[in-house]
């Protein structure tokens, strides 16, 4: 079981890192999600005891599984959920303002904008912020 779990964590982490190194921003977000899932799986695998569900009334004499790691895994899932929504919103914002999902294009656009900025002799007016993807971490 330990071997299977560690293999699963390793494969998830590896594929996540591969995606993270791509230039396409949507793949980067995918990589972040995969790596976070690897972490969640690792949390689950760190449980101290395994057995039946730890809900009262407890069955006599049978071991119950460690409820703490499940709470931690749930929290990690919630945080991943919020963070992926946030990242997608950010990527959407990038796409709206550049019509591209490539970080290199973004750097090029940045240089261009700086040249314009320099020519106009001041900072350009700023665009409005993205939506409020931030309120969800609070729950546990």
């Amino acid at each position: 079981m330990t071997l299977v779990l560690s293999l699963a964590v390793a494969v998830l982490f590896g594929s996540g890192s591969y995606l993270l190194l791509q230039r396409d921003l949507v793949r980067v977000v995918g990589g972040v999600v995969l790596i976070s899932s690897a972490a969640t799986l690792f949390v689950m695998s760190a449980s101290l005891t395994k057995g039946t569900a730890p809900i009262l009334p407890l069955p006599n004499g049978q071991p119950v599984s460690d409820p703490l790691v499940q709470a931690m895994a749930l929290t990690a899932i919630v945080i991943t959920f919020g963070v992926s929504a946030l990242l997608l919103a950010l990527v959407y914002r990038v796409y709206v303002s550049h019509l591209s999902l490539d970080l290199e294009d973004l750097a090029a656009a940045e240089e261009q904008a700086e040249a314009v900025d320099e020519a106009m002799g001041g900072r350009l007016e700023r665009a409005p912020m993205t939506a409020e993807e931030r309120d969800e971490w609070a729950m546990r």
Partner: peptide, 26 residues
């Protein structure tokens, strides 16, 4: 409270990303 927060947040996120179709770009 948590239910309302998660529901409202996910619907808001879906709404935002649902608007992300090419013909809606400024």
């Amino acid at each position: 409270g948590v239910f309302l927060l998660v529901f409202g947040f996910s619907v808001a996120a879906i709404d935002l990303l649902g608007r992300a179709s090419p013909d809606r770009l400024p």
